[in-house]
Nucleic acid binder design. Structure first.
Length: 295
DNA sequence: AATGTAGTCAACCGCAGGCAT
DNA sequence: CATGCCTGCGGTTGACTACAT
């Protein structure tokens, strides 16, 4: 039922003025009309756009155009290696849930990410950067686990809970102080799993979910920035504090432009975090891992 | 310079879930 | 509770561009 109704739904207000919806590329005039409409009425109510603006576009088309092209917070330009790594790792975690992945990449649309994936990974091999990053993350995770083990052996803490559980809870608690808009990797790290699209879960609820998805959290450790957050929460990152970047809550919680724009110093921030180009995956990889200063 | 091929991107289509009535 | 509508998502397509031959 839904299918037929739905298709009809979007085209239902059909034929405004007896004519069919316009299709194909948008003109600048149409864009202007849509932008003006959103400016006045906000997002949503897409089906009313045609009535209010005279635009001969379906609500569905209007929404798509706005979301994928006209939104002011969209980031233009190529996907950066950092973003690429995030995409790959989140895809490994979530599969083709492009919208979920997109939420971890402010300024990028699901469509963009989807296209990028299809172009770069669908039929080909992952880039060198990705392979390097994967190798490094695996290695670093192993080292982390080893160091944790050592810590536990050397100085058993009064904590009754397993370390990983503590991390999970800490992440959930920290969530409260991070904003979705600002929090790039934080969003990624604590984004609800695919099966639980909770709009605004309470911290407690979220902690519960995260604990429930302990396996997923384990996978998340593959992502350097996510792991970084976890390390921060463990107090293992020295002077790097979550308060860095103000409300952002982390070194990588600045705005999208800040992160990937042309800024060199921001590039340095990411560089220190990801250090993709300098990573060597060989016998000296240990040193390379160390070169990732945040570890 | 012309042609073929691959890559990229915008847009469409169908489906499913949520919400209101 | 059932029905219909709205919105969002993922898959797919087609046009355009860049590059190779």
């Amino acid at each position: 039922m839904a299918a037929e109704v739905q298709s009809a739904g979007w085209g239902r207000h059909e034929q405004q003025d007896g004519g069919a919806w316009r299709k194909g590329p948008w003109t600048s005039q149409e864009d202007a009309l849509l932008v003006e409409h959103v400016r006045q009425h906000g997002e949503g109510r897409w089906n009313s756009v045609s009535k209010l603006t005279g635009l001969k576009r379906s609500g569905k088309s209007c929404r798509l155009r706005w979301v994928n092209y006209l939104r002011p917070d969209l980031k233009r330009g190529k996907i950066t290696p950092q973003e690429e790594s995030i995409i790959v790792q989140l895809h490994a975690l979530w599969g083709n849930r492009w919208s979920t992945i997109a939420r971890s990449l402010p300024g990028r649309t699901d469509n963009e990410i989807k296209n990028y994936w299809r172009t770069h990974f669908k039929k080909g091999k992952p880039s060198k950067n990705i392979e390097r990053a994967r190798a490094r993350f695996l290695k670093q995770r192993r080292e982390m686990q080893e160091s944790q083990l050592q810590r536990q052996q050397q100085a058993p803490t009064p904590q009754s809970k397993d370390d990983d559980d503590v991390v999970v809870v800490a992440v959930a608690e920290a969530r409260g102080s991070w904003t979705d808009d600002d929090d790039v990797m934080g969003g990624a790290a604590v984004a609800p799993p695919p099966s639980s699209p909770t709009p605004t879960p309470t911290p407690g609820r979220e902690a519960e979910e995260l604990i429930m998805h302990q396996d997923a959290m384990d996978d998340l450790m593959l992502c350097p920035a996510m792991s970084y957050h976890l390390l921060l929460l463990h107090g293992a990152a020295g002077h790097h504090q979550l308060s860095d970047g103000g409300g952002g809550g982390s070194c990588c919680a600045s705005t999208s432009e800040d992160q990937y724009g042309s800024s060199e110093e921001d590039g340095a921030t990411w560089g220190s975090l990801w250090n993709l180009d300098g990573v060597v995956v060989d016998a000296d990889a240990d040193a390379a891992a160390g070169a990732c200063t945040l570890w």
